[in-house]
């Protein structure tokens, strides 16, 4: 399996924790907006280190929480980092979710959705597992408007879906989800060096880095499952 090969090596190199740290800058704002009530069931798609579920348990008293991932090393690490009986980790694929119909209150996914082989199928699966009125919080840094992310495809063997914000809305609707909202969540924490430091290894100009983090940030699309 492609995903396991690719992401197991990331996990082995400690990139799971690195991603957690960087993604947290915007993921924490995304999680804070979710209408998770005490005791509700949450599914995290492409859970990586599992940080999102630990946060929802601690801050919102979420109930049963499931972290799904395709990469066994990611899951092994996530399990190691987690000391909570209400959080379970499951190996599975986005396109064939191993959860019963109507069994989940909320689905979260950070920087993972676009790896789905068939993203519309993934959205249909999300709609199926969500109870009526359940929400899908879909957060991505790789998307059409974020031109600075386009090169990422070069460094990864998995084909990534690069939708624009309107394409995300259309796809949600095509899969039968209501679109409740969409926004760019800025990353105000990644440090941007002084003008004199540019060009850096990664950034030609300071303005580009400002645009990437402070303006474009993370694209969040919120879906709701109909009755």
């Amino acid at each position: 399996m492609n995903v396991a090969t690719e992401f197991d090596s990331w996990a082995a190199e400690g990139r799971d924790r690195g991603m957690e740290e960087r993604h947290w800058h915007t993921a924490k704002h995304v999680l804070a907006r979710m209408p998770v009530e005490a005791g509700e069931t949450v599914l995290d798609l492409g859970t990586g280190s599992g940080y999102a579920l630990r946060a929802l348990r601690e801050t919102r008293s979420a109930g049963q929480c499931y972290g799904l991932d395709g990469a066994p090393e990611m899951l092994r690490n996530a399990r190691d980092y987690t000391d909570d009986d209400a959080i379970g980790f499951v190996r599975g694929d986005f396109d064939a979710l191993p959860f019963a119909t109507d069994s989940v209150d909320h689905v979260f996914s950070m920087e993972a959705f676009y790896y789905a082989q068939n993203p519309i199928q993934t959205l249909r699966e999300i709609r199926r597992v969500l109870r009526p009125g359940g929400t899908f919080y879909c957060a991505v840094n790789y998307y059409e408007e974020n031109v600075h992310s386009h090169v990422w495809q070069e460094n990864i063997s998995i084909e990534m879906t690069r939708w624009s914000a309107p394409e995300y809305r259309d796809a949600f609707r095509e899969a039968g989800l209501f679109v409740a909202g969409q926004e760019n969540v800025p990353d105000t924490e990644t440090e941007i060096p002084d003008e004199s430091a540019f060009p850096t290894e990664e950034w030609e100009a300071r303005a580009a880095m400002v645009e990437r983090y402070r303006e474009l940030g993370t694209l969040l699309t919120v879906g709701v499952a109909p009755s």
Binding site: A4, L75, R79, G92, D93, P98
Partner: peptide, 13 residues
């Protein structure tokens, strides 16, 4: 190791 593998069989390596 406490982790169920629910990948569809054709994706299981």
């Amino acid at each position: 190791d406490g982790i169920p593998n629910l990948l569809p069989p054709d994706m299981r390596d």
